[in-house]
Design a protein around this nucleic acid. Structure first.
Lengths: 202, 202
DNA sequence: AAAATCGTAGCACGGTCGTGCTATAAAAGC
DNA sequence: GCTTTTATAGCACGACCGTGCTACGATTTT
């Protein structure tokens, strides 16, 4: 065998390069040449790990889903049964929102991928997973809050998508603080939930 | 002067062709060649009306904004002061949602354009107009419903964006009926508003 | 030492794109 | 009737793209 390089790590590096290129210039800029340059590799080297341009994009899309899953799972590990339900809800929802720079980049990539997914069946399947995952999370979250209406789960999922969309496209008009305020409003006017008046500042 | 053709009409026809191409295959498919073929014209003819590819896309984006404006304005004309506020709210919000096939196409085009707007400053300006317009509409609507909280306006605007996004990407999982149910839930749990219990079926 | 394997790199081809430029026919003005 | 203007059309160029293919060290295996 040749060099002492971990192929898995190389693949991750290349996918990271894809994310950076997409975040900077959109999915249209994610050409093999641009990605190779971003990863400091020759175009042939990239193709050694990903047989085609399409496969590279699919791997990136799957990695995007995986990262969200990991974040949600990690957040769940961090919880205690005694945690304040309102704060838990804020944190869970925050996993899907661009509340910091890193998440903003991820959300930008997300937007480009799901837009592309509309006209690409293979990407569409991945996007559907993402959508179902979000639905499941909002459903479980509302269940913990004493709300068992599937329409309410859809309601919250749509809100999170809309907030992510708005904050990604117009970060100057939809600041993290505003996002939190909207989230606060939503959570506190849930019918069955505590009214959250003990958290008036967030 | 030459032919008896109205240049304005030709421009509209070409922009319509752009919409059809984008709705079918995404904004990446909106090449001069594809648009010309869709409009049954030679590529040179399209370029006679639009100096560049970019100008064509900008014109299409502006036309998209104009159509939404026209729809909202038309809906406002159609109203009586005595109309049921809940129904008015449903109809206004419906102007932004893909509740029928025509609107579904428009929403699909919308999604592609705003995704492109993230990395294109000129498109970004147009997208910002759209966003501000939606914010203004939701603000006025909530004002009529007795709610004057700007956060609530942002809340409703984000919900509408999220619903449009979800329904466009996953029409099988977010049917028009479900959209209406979510909208109903949102409107009826507004703090200051009538509880809408007289419209349990919508 | 020889062979097989793998990471890296690059060339070259066919295809598509936007665009500069030119050509032609038809209608309007003189 | 001649010129001007406009709509339509097409060619050709350079740029960029994905990809098939080959080459060449480096490293492990035999």
């Amino acid at each position: 065998m040749p060099k002492v390089v971990d192929p898995e790590q190389r693949r991750r590096d290349i996918v990271d390069a894809v994310f950076r290129v997409v975040a900077r210039g959109g999915i249209q800029q994610a050409t093999l040449r641009n990605v190779a340059a971003e990863a400091d590799l020759a175009i042939g080297s990239v193709r050694h790990y990903f047989a085609s341009h399409r496969e590279l994009l699919m791997a990136a899309a799957r990695e995007m889903v995986r990262r969200v899953d990991v974040r949600v799972a990690a957040q769940r590990e961090r919880r205690d049964p005694g945690d304040d339900l309102y704060l838990v809800a804020q944190e869970v929802a925050g996993q899907f929102l661009p509340l910091d720079a890193a998440r903003a980049d991820e959300t930008a990539v997300w937007l480009d991928f799901i837009a592309a997914a509309r006209t690409d069946p293979a990407l569409g399947e991945i996007a559907a997973e993402l959508h179902d995952g979000l639905r499941a999370v909002t459903g479980r979250l509302l269940h913990r809050l004493g709300v068992d209406d599937p329409v309410a789960a859809e309601h919250l999922a749509a809100l999170l998508d809309g907030l992510a969309l708005g904050a990604t496209l117009h970060p100057d008009r939809l600041s993290p603080d505003t996002i939190r305020a909207v989230l606060h409003l939503h959570l506190t006017q849930l019918p069955g939930a505590a009214d959250g008046s003990e958290h008036p500042e967030i």
